[in-house]
């Protein structure tokens, strides 16, 4: 059942991604709407699986594959929330493919592998806070990409094709900021609880230092973004580049993370 839900939601997200991408380039009014239907279907399936997993296991997000599953669920959920609030289906053409990538990674970590995460309270808070902040940063990354594309199109004075389907510059800029400003405190919380959790469980290993360093760099990147967003000389293009760098650091941190 769990395998089926996983596969089905992956297919649904894939369809949603294809439709959203097509919507950017083709003139067909219904494409985005169909994409949203697929995205909602996939999200429902994922939610169902999440509920079933939580009921079955005493500790949710007990391993790497569950954590990544949760990340893709959060990305899709956040995107749908943004869609409901801002009506920006164009964001889906990047957010949904990223949800697909995250979901496909679940297959890279067969269920028990990666070992169980420490079941105590600190680590549970750590995992939820970190993953939620990563989902928020992923969407902020999407916003930054669209901001930079739209900014370039506006500067080069080209208004055809994709231009009309992209979100307005100011809207996407402030949306990216909102997302990062929720993600940042969550990241802070995640890092602190992570350090505390490791200390408490005396699980310090050789990887811990690298983990700590990359996390700290990521944290500083987002801290810089929060300042840059409203500083003269940084606002706009440069600030959004920081957002993209931040997302890449996030991905790097995740890759180095051993989930132990």
């Amino acid at each position: 059942m769990s395998e089926f839900l996983l596969g089905a939601s992956l297919v649904a997200y894939f369809i949603a991604s294809a439709l959203y991408l097509a919507n950017l380039h083709l003139k067909h009014k219904q494409l985005a709407a169909y994409g949203t239907v697929a995205a909602i279907a996939g999200f429902s399936l994922q939610t169902l699986r999440l509920i079933l997993q939580t009921l079955n296991q005493s500790t949710p997000f007990a391993n790497a594959s569950e954590a990544i599953f949760f990340l893709s669920w959060a990305i899709a959920g956040l995107y749908l929330a943004i869609l409901a609030w801002y009506r920006l289906p164009s964001v889906g053409s990047l957010a949904m493919p990223l949800a697909v990538v995250a979901l496909a990674l679940v297959y890279r970590f067969p269920t028990p592998a990666g070992g169980p995460l420490a079941g105590d309270g600190w680590m549970r808070i750590h995992v939820v806070a970190i993953i939620t902040s990563f989902a928020l940063f992923t969407l902020a990354f999407c916003c930054a990409v669209f901001y930079l594309i739209q900014n370039k199109l506006l500067k080069s004075k080209r208004m055809t094709g994709m231009f009309r389907r992209l979100p307005p510059l100011k809207t996407i800029d402030s949306l990216g900021y909102h997302l990062a400003s929720i993600g940042f405190p969550l990241l802070t919380l995640g890092i602190i609880t992570g350090i505390v959790g490791v200390e408490m469980a005396r699980m310090r290993d050789t990887g811990a230092e690298i983990k700590l360093v990359t996390s700290a760099i990521t944290w500083f990147a987002y801290a810089a973004y929060m300042v840059a967003h409203s500083s003269p000389g940084w606002r706009g293009k440069k600030a959004n580049w920081i957002l993209i760098v931040g997302a890449l650091l996030t991905a790097l941190t995740t890759a180095l993370h051993k989930f132990s």
Binding site: Q150, P167, L169, K170
Partner: peptide, 19 residues
Amino acid sequence: KGAFSIGYAAVELARSIFG
């Protein structure tokens, strides 16, 4: 769709920048 005149073009651009 799109601009019929300079005025329309201005409105469209304003929308793309500010929403």
